[in-house]
Design a binder for these strands. Structure first.
Lengths: 224, 224
DNA sequence: GTCTATAGTGAGATAGAC
DNA sequence: GTCTATCTCACTATAGAC
């Protein structure tokens, strides 16, 4: 039986494969930046972990800052997409807040470096001195746009809940800060958190318990 | 009228002034490490901000790591001392928890870089890969001892409150993580937090409002 | 206790061959 | 798209004069 494929064409489609290195680089860089911060990781180190020469990185990302921005964008985009999937506007604010927290917790649990990376990005004064949430003179960077969307969604939820009387009246920006700290810090606390919890922070049981605990805590903290 | 001071002795007492440079270095280094992380600040930069030559730092702190450790120790020691001052064992767990939060908030507000520095120290995998809270083979470092004391005090409070029935039953380590995140993140969020709150995070009114909000939130989250 | 000078290392980035 | 080689610069740390 003759092979229908022409002999000069390999069986795997050769097209649509170029981003393989890029994905690997982003993955390794995410772990590095999360663990040691922007200044703490060298491109040499990242390249070696990927299995490339240092200079090859510059083919994919022209500068270290571009690589960092791309990592942040990918992480925050995944988060934002998860939140979009959870959208069910017919639910009340309390249910939607609970699902907002669910989605964040599940994503931070699945993408272990993400919490560290986000916390750093929000706390660092370098390389981005001020992460902006609203348009000013310059356009927002892609990752800033994503973060603004994520926090804005939480803020809208709180506002709605207060208006509906299911949440007590409180300062929305303050509440955002509290919720973000309560949700994100745990998954960023690494060895310290593990010493405290006495278990791998990212094991299935630990994540599910954490999800329940933090949802309960936040809902009680906000309830009218 | 003759000057009573001998001409070769300056009017200010020359003795008891040696730690002046050391204090300045610690202060500048705290701000630097807080803003940009351990790897992000150079000793040259710190020395310049203090007004010293780079090499003079090594006279006070033999290595960069020693300087970092000293900064952490100072910050956490101030926090621990503030908590000691608040001790009134005759109060119930709820009041003591409220005063625990009060003391932390007031210290983080007074010592602006402290929150960033602490959050970093708890999240970083470098230069200290694992901050330990209990004695193992090696002795705890001074700053680890302080942190263990601060978190241990919170844990004890929670345990007592649950036993007394004023807090609902919950996982103590999880609750510690939640409370720390909720309290500390706000003061570490810098420009992002300021954009959110719309005000200087460290102004008197903002701090007092924050104190009220986070105490209320945490107490509601824990109440039985 | 502070300085200048310098060693030694590793960083980010560029050029150009293949 | 990856490589080798190289540039420039900043870093931690040391040595020794004052």
């Amino acid at each position: 039986m003759p092979d229908p494929r022409p002999p000069d064409r390999p069986s795997r489609p050769p097209v649509l494969r170029p981003p393989e290195s890029r994905e690997k680089i982003l993955e390794v860089a995410e772990a590095g930046f999360a663990a040691k911060g922007y200044a703490g990781v060298g491109l040499r180190e990242i390249a070696a972990a990927v299995g490339l020469g240092k200079s090859s990185l510059f083919h994919h990302f022209p500068t270290k800052l571009d690589l960092y921005g791309a990592v942040l964008e990918q992480v925050l985009t995944r988060l934002a997409l998860d939140l979009d999937l959870q959208t069910r506007p017919e639910d009340g604010p309390a249910e939607r807040l609970e699902r907002w927290i669910d989605a964040i917790v599940r994503r931070l649990a699945e993408d272990a470096p993400a919490a560290r990376l986000m916390l750093r990005a929000m706390v660092d004064q370098e390389p981005y001195p001020a992460i902006r949430l609203i348009e000013t003179d310059r356009e927002l960077m892609p990752f800033e746009r994503r973060l603004a969307g994520i926090l804005g969604r939480l803020g809208g939820l709180l506002e709605e809940g207060i208006a509906a009387g299911v949440f007590r009246p409180l300062g929305i920006p303050d509440a955002i800060q509290t919720v973000v700290g309560a949700v994100v810090f745990h998954f960023a606390s690494g060895d310290l958190g593990e010493a405290l919890i006495g278990e791998d922070l990212f094991s299935g049981t630990a994540v599910e318990r954490r999800r329940r605990e933090v949802v309960e805590f936040v809902c009680r903290g906000l309830r009218a």
